[in-house]
Design a protein around this nucleic acid. Sequence first.
DNA 1: TATTTCGCGATTGGATACAGAATGCAAGAC
DNA 2: GTCTTGCATTCTGTATCCAATCGCGAAATA
Lengths: 214, 214
Amino acid sequence: MNIALGATHAPLTKLVTAALRERILSGDIPLGERLIEGKLSEELGVSRMPVREALRELAAEGLVTIEPRRGASVTTFTEEQKRELVEVRATLEALNAKLAAKRHDPSQIAELQQILDEGAGISESEDAIQLSQQNFRFHEALGNIGGNSVLQDMIRSLRDRTAMLFAPISRHRGKQNWQEHAAILRAVIDGDAELAALLAARHVYNAAQIPQDG
Amino acid sequence: MNIALGATHAPLTKLVTAALRERILSGDIPLGERLIEGKLSEELGVSRMPVREALRELAAEGLVTIEPRRGASVTTFTEEQKRELVEVRATLEALNAKLAAKRHDPSQIAELQQILDEGAGISESEDAIQLSQQNFRFHEALGNIGGNSVLQDMIRSLRDRTAMLFAPISRHRGKQNWQEHAAILRAVIDGDAELAALLAARHVYNAAQIPQDG
DNA sequence: TATTTCGCGATTGGATACAGAATGCAAGAC
DNA sequence: GTCTTGCATTCTGTATCCAATCGCGAAATA
């Protein structure tokens, strides 16, 4: 029974995974909510099997927590775990920014510049959805410049988790957010690896409104 | 039908995952080998379902690659990807070492010291299996001292992947390996965060025999 | 009234069944 | 002799089915 999508060529599991991820990240399904296979499968019009695999996939990404024989729920984090997430993400974003500054690829930088300009515009309006999408694009493009795909995958996973935690905050700092992006981009353009790294790390801490450790 | 194991209380999927991981990391299943659900399930005496989930799990860890409608195989890495793995792992091990040096917990350090002593002994004999197990213990204990569980999970995943790639190398540098461990431990004991980080990163590069980038 | 036990419904874990896609091989055309 | 085409086989993707377990509430007992 097809969802409303182009029938048989994209594995159903992938679609379900994407749908659930979307719903979790957007806050449509709240933190801690139980995710019952049967309910979800009925809701999406597929069998339990793709739902099952989607939940495992999301569990691997850390968005969902599965307890054996008890089922899945949207992951909740303790304050301690939030700090941990931010700490790791800051470190990896710093590494990526450093790499980006070193590689310094003009055409990719041009693309990033364009995303930045668009984002600066959007950050005036307070369209939360559009802003978060543009934010995603910026970080994704920066990851491309860094050019380490392993790193990018890990950062993406961390970004998802932090995004779902700090979404409420990020709404209130659209402008500062894009000013920080601009500063990072400048450092990358200048090939100033150390500065880029520093700014990227600080950017992560700021977005989480967590004081950078001492 | 049960594998030869304690019946019904540990989720089968977990057992299968562990079995496959073991086989891959030990090199029993070679890089690039196709992993056919039916074959494996028959071989292990379980249905395809736990095997399927195990493969997805391992794919999430990066040990296995799944192509839609083509199936799973043991991940192979290009030289470029190997460099990327090492680069990220070095950065995260450095972070963890830094945290460990800062936290500096005496009782945990005592445990690590003991593992180190045992390892130094074992490194004389060239029992590859025992050595790699002890190596695992050392890094795991160091991760505990660092105290960031998110970080530790990511490092573990990276460690698995690098271990499977560089196993041939590591056999020939048992002693140097443990000397480096000793140096890291000393820096942690001294609370010298910067040095610990530096040594940990260098240790990763050395284990991979990849020149630390410039 | 508080507490323990039992049983039932809800839910997950695992097996089996079936349909559709990919691959390899063989037969035929050029 | 080589390339193409079509068929048979193999394998994955999804659905359905059965068994085992968990949680909760009701009932029984102290």
